[in-house]
């Protein structure tokens, strides 16, 4: 842990290594030219990201405060849009349609259940992936003949497009499919709430555990064997070695992996969209937004903004309180 502290000092970008510079004055000058050079090199990327992300997001936020044109259910007349204030947000967060609770079956009534489903998927898949990924990483870290075959095999699920994974598992989870035959069950997997949820979770875990396993493996490989040898000599049990050495030392890599996976599941769309179409309470926030687009842009803008803020908030909690220092890992200079 303590060896990783120097990562932080880089961020301030003050010349912290004066012994490398001939003198303070030239160090400052170097800093200025480097800064100019850096802004030139970064400009195209930042401009492009501003065009493809920042501009659409500002657009979506602006839209979310506008009213969707449509028939007024009270008067029966067609109404143009116009400024809506926070009406769209009240509509989603309060599940209010025209001043009363949205009737069941409308998109408006599904917001909190979609939020719940999204978080349920996120928590369950990330826990399963972390446990399975850790197990896979520990096996892959061992030396045995055929280890490279395992390392190659875990890349296969990762490289299959999610849409194909969805279709593949949809087929395997079919009523007459191989999974019912293997289990000797007759479950309508994608046809009812809990089986459908588990089918989606299992598909996601299959597809993305390898990513988790590889990140954890990379972290495991940084732990020198001497540490384990020393612990063994001191009489530490396998469990003690795992909790006292492996876990704390692999934690930085693990937290980054969990952060990436969490943010990825929060925006889950492909698997439920293809496997169930969002039926049987498998509608995630992303599916809700896409369904809403055809019913009204501005209202869709509001729910997409809520989705974005939710993801942002979770990322913030991870980085601020759980110590997932992805940025620090990326900006730290050199390895070792």
């Amino acid at each position: 842990m303590s060896t990783e502290v120097p990562a932080r000092s880089e961020a301030t970008a003050t010349p912290t290594a004066p012994h490398r510079m001939p003198g303070r004055e030239s160090a400052d000058r170097k800093q200025v030219t480097q800064g100019r050079w850096a802004s030139m090199l970064l400009l195209p990327t930042l401009v492009l990201l501003a065009v493809v992300i920042v501009y659409p997001v500002i657009n979506a936020v602006t839209m979310s405060f506008q009213k969707d044109a449509g028939l007024n259910p009270v008067t029966g007349f067609f109404e143009q849009g116009g400024f809506a204030g926070i009406d769209n947000y009240v509509h989603w967060l309060g599940q209010q349609c025209n001043g009363q609770a949205c009737p069941p079956g409308t998109l408006g009534s599904e917001f909190w259940s979609a939020m719940g489903t999204t978080f349920f998927f996120t928590i369950v898949t990330v826990i399963l992936e972390t446990v399975l990924g850790f197990w896979m990483a520990i096996i892959m870290a061992r030396t045995f003949r055929g280890r490279s075959a395992i390392r190659a095999a875990v890349l296969v699920p990762w490289s299959i497009p999610t849409a194909v994974t969805a279709k593949l598992f949809f087929f395997m989870f079919a009523f007459e499919g191989i999974i019912n035959k293997l289990l000797g069950t007759q479950i309508l997997w994608t046809g009812s709430e809990w089986p459908a949820r588990w089918a989606i979770i299992i598909s996601d875990v299959w597809k993305t555990t390898p990513f988790m396993a590889l990140l954890i493996l990379a972290g495991l490989q940084l732990i020198p064997d001497e540490v384990y040898e020393a612990a063994k000599v001191d009489g530490a049990s396998a469990w003690q070695r795992f909790t006292q050495i492996t876990l704390p030392l692999v934690k930085p890599a693990l937290m980054v992996a969990i952060l990436f996976r969490t943010l990825d599941v929060l925006r889950m769309y492909d698997l439920p969209a293809i496997m169930t179409g969002g039926a049987n309470n498998t509608t995630t926030l992303s599916i809700l937004v896409v369904d809403q687009i055809r019913e009204g842009f501005n209202s869709a803008g509001a729910v997409s903004t809520i989705t974005f803020l939710t993801v942002f908030l979770v990322a913030f909690i991870f980085v601020r309180f759980l110590g997932a220092n992805a940025v620090g890992a990326a900006t730290s200079s050199g390895k070792k």
């Binding site: 943010l263 769309y269 997409s304």
Partner: peptide, 12 residues
């Protein structure tokens, strides 16, 4: 890490 769905609405 940005959710793609937040881009789809305005871009649509």
């Amino acid at each position: 890490m940005f959710p793609g769905v937040a881009l789809v609405t305005p871009l649509f």
